Amino acid sequence: MIQVKLFDQEHEKDLEKVMNRFLERLDEKKLLDIKYNIAALPEDDESPEQIYCFSAMVIYRK
């Protein structure tokens, strides 16, 4: 059976840390693919600050 695990963090180092913990427990032979995405959104209409969203999806066999 094919499964997915979704990850979403505000900082890229946090995403790296949680994904590495998950991947340590996953047999390499079961890993099919990893999809990665970054989104940047304005904090609000008045602010020049941006909010970042770093996300990834691990596709694997159970």
Rank of each mutant, 00 (worst) to 15 (best):
E43A: 10
M1E: 13
V58R: 06
F7T: 00
K35W: 08
I34G: 07
S47L: 03
Q50G: 12
L31E: 11
I59N: 09
A40C: 13
Q3V: 08
I34R: 14
Y52N: 09
E12V: 12
E49R: 08
E12K: 03
P48N: 09
K62Q: 11
A56K: 14
M1C: 10
Q9Y: 01
L6K: 11
K35R: 14
E43Q: 11
K35F: 12
R25I: 02
Q9P: 01
P42E: 00
L23G: 07
V18S: 01
I51C: 11
K29W: 05
R61M: 11
Q50Y: 14
R61A: 07
E46G: 00
I59K: 09
L6I: 04
I51H: 14
K13N: 10
C53M: 08
Y36P: 01
H11P: 02
Y36S: 08
I34L: 05
V18T: 05
L41Q: 13
E49S: 12
K5A: 15
K29V: 06
Y60I: 02
Y52D: 09
L23C: 04
N37E: 13
V58C: 06
A40F: 08
I38M: 13
D45F: 08
I38S: 03
R21H: 05
R25N: 11
M19Y: 08
P48A: 04
P42S: 01
Q50C: 13
K30W: 02
D27L: 09
E49G: 03
A56R: 12
P42Y: 00
I51V: 15
L41A: 11
D27M: 03
A39F: 01
D14Y: 00
E28Q: 13
A56I: 07
D44A: 00
E46N: 01
Y36R: 07
S47E: 06
N37W: 00
L23N: 05
Q3R: 15
I2V: 15
L26I: 04
K35V: 13
R21A: 13
I2G: 07
Y52C: 08
Y52M: 10
R61Y: 13
A39C: 03
K13T: 04
A56Y: 14
L23Y: 04
R25E: 06
P48Q: 10
R61L: 14
A39D: 07
L31P: 13
F22N: 03
V18M: 01
P48R: 04
N20M: 12
K17Q: 04
M19P: 01
Y36T: 11
Y52S: 10
E24K: 03
Y60L: 05
F22R: 02
D44F: 00
D8A: 09
D14S: 04
I34F: 05
K5D: 06
Q9C: 14
N37G: 10
Y60K: 02
K30M: 14
L15I: 08
K29E: 15
I51S: 12
E10C: 01
D33Y: 08
F54K: 02
P42R: 07
K62D: 15
D44H: 00
V58A: 09
K29A: 14
C53E: 10
D44K: 00
D14Q: 06
R25Y: 05
D8W: 01
M1Q: 14
K62H: 08
D14E: 10
P42D: 00
F7H: 03
D44C: 01
E49K: 09
K29D: 15
E24R: 01
Y36L: 11
K62A: 12
D8P: 06
R61I: 07
E46D: 03
N20A: 15
P42V: 00
A56P: 07
F7Q: 02
I34W: 04
I51W: 10
V58I: 12
